[in-house]
Amino acid sequence: MWFFDKYNDKKDGVIRGYDIRATKVKILALIIMLVCLLMVCVSLFPALWVFLASFKDIKEFTRNVTIFPEKYDWSRMLGTWNAFKFTKYYKNSLIAILGCSACAIIFNGLLAYGFAILKPKGHKIALGLVMWSLMIPGITSIVALFRNINLIGLNQSFIPIWFSFGANAFWVVLFKQYFEGIPKELLEAAKLDGCGVLQIFIKIMLPLSKPILVVVAIFSITAAWSDFLLPYLVLNGTDKTTVMVKLFSFKDTPTDAVSVLRAAFFAIIPPTVIFAIFQRQITDGAASGAVKG
């Protein structure tokens, strides 16, 4: 049977190609398949549901015991989009994301380069501090952080949002582990050729680190899109409001449930599109990036 034939070429996992001849293993393989399909449903259903529910009007949503809407009226969606001026929030989110992602790659990358390759005297102390901040969630000191941002007059600006992504211990660790795997000979050779510290980073390290760059870029893009607490405190009420800031502010504004759901739906679209396009790179990257952790 074609279903089981393919198991003969199976390269990884507990069930080996030779196992599949046994009926018991065949049944097991089928059960696993079914369980996996169920997991897919569980994973995807909430997003699908918010899409369907967004078509309902408020009366239908609060009263009807249904999953599917009565009709698929795009003008309702468009109405909410325009009423809340989502075009503007999308633009602002884009500005935030680009800056955040650039900062995440540049600053965390450079620091990891220092920890993994340069290892100047005393770097262990700095590394220790960075590792400890991995353990202590930033949210505990958000009040004090906000006070600092005010102190240097950077409130209501994208700058603190961008730079906040340049100090992420987790990504430093990802970079560091990857950099440590780069063959030392290449770096030695570059050094003998007279390359400076920064030149080595740009000419040797970065081209060799494409997979991890993709991982951090994608991680930081989705994280920046989803980030809301600091942006909310810094940007709320300005013309720089991002999609997530708007979504978070609904908790205090009497807004009907369907509008909130539609806003949530709008907030899900961009990451879903990115994911649909780059799914291969994202899933491969997410696995390979942290594989040595």
């Binding site: 600053f107 770097h123 901040s133 505990t140 004090a144 600092n148 340049g166 100090a167 510290v197």
Partner: peptide, 25 residues
């Protein structure tokens, strides 16, 4: 020295966004 200079901007960011707020707290 050069190495530390390369790392300095990132360390300043860590100090500003993570370490100083913790101490301030």
């Amino acid at each position: 020295l050069i190495s530390w200079l390369v790392m300095l901007p990132s360390l300043i960011l860590f100090a500003f966004f993570v370490w100083e707020p913790l101490l301030e707290n």
